[in-house]
Simulated scan of single mutants.
Amino acid sequence: MLERILHNSDLGKLLLRLPVGLLMMFHGFYKLQNGLGFIEKSLAGAGLPTFLAWGVLIGEILAPLLVVLGIYARPAALVEAFVMIAAIYLVHMGDLMSFTQHGGYALELQFLYLFGSLAVVFLGSGKYSLSRGRGVWD
């Protein structure tokens, strides 16, 4: 019985998908409520078109929702990972080698989202999802 509980990779996939998706959605909802001005300013500062800021809503609301539900989880998680790479590049490069006052890595949250998303890309959604983990995209 204990063996069966401890060797449940589908439960592990669910426990990875839920926080990676749900917690990312809070960032998207905040931006939806408060606007994309900060992101537009960051994009403009990097010489990129400001309309790309709207892509953040895809990467922080739609993609995380798909990850949580387990529908097209792999490509959705890849979109999330891309958003995190863009966020690190556009906003957090100055903190790349920094630590917090308590000794933690300054970008630990960003890297947890990035690598959590990449883990979903490689693991898929598992059977505890709407897709039941079937298909190459789930």
Score class of each variant (00 low, 15 high):
M1K: 10
M1D: 09
E3A: 15
E3P: 03
E3Q: 14
L6G: 10
N8G: 09
N8S: 14
N8Q: 11
S9M: 12
D10L: 00
D10M: 06
G12C: 04
L14Q: 06
L14N: 02
L15D: 02
R17V: 14
R17A: 13
P19Q: 11
V20P: 06
G21I: 00
L22V: 08
L22C: 05
L23G: 04
L23V: 15
M24A: 03
M24C: 05
M24N: 03
F26E: 10
F29H: 06
K31S: 09
L32N: 07
G35A: 08
L36C: 07
G37Q: 01
G37I: 01
F38Y: 15
I39A: 02
E40F: 00
K41Q: 14
K41C: 08
S42D: 09
L43G: 00
A44P: 07
G45S: 03
A46H: 08
G47N: 01
G47W: 05
P49E: 11
F51N: 09
L52S: 03
A53D: 13
A53F: 09
A53K: 02
W54R: 06
W54G: 12
V56T: 15
L57C: 13
E60K: 02
I61K: 09
A63I: 11
P64K: 03
L65M: 09
L65S: 14
L66A: 04
L66I: 01
V67C: 06
V67D: 04
V68R: 02
L69A: 13
L69D: 06
A73Y: 04
R74V: 04
R74C: 10
R74T: 08
R74Q: 10
A76S: 12
V79N: 02
A81V: 05
F82H: 01
F82L: 13
V83R: 11
M84Q: 14
M84P: 01
A87W: 08
A87K: 07
I88P: 09
Y89F: 12
V91F: 13
V91C: 15
M93E: 11
M93Q: 11
G94I: 10
L96K: 07
F99E: 08
F99D: 01
F99P: 03
T100Y: 09
H102P: 00
H102S: 15
G104Y: 10
G104P: 07
G104M: 13
Y105K: 07
E108N: 14
E108I: 08
E108G: 03
L109F: 15
L109Y: 05
Q110G: 10
Y113C: 00
L114H: 01
F115G: 11
A119G: 05
V120Q: 07
V120M: 07
L123D: 00
G126S: 12
G126F: 04
K127F: 12
K127Y: 13
Y128S: 10
Y128H: 10
S129N: 02
L130Y: 11
S131A: 14
R132D: 01
R132N: 07
V136F: 12
D138I: 04
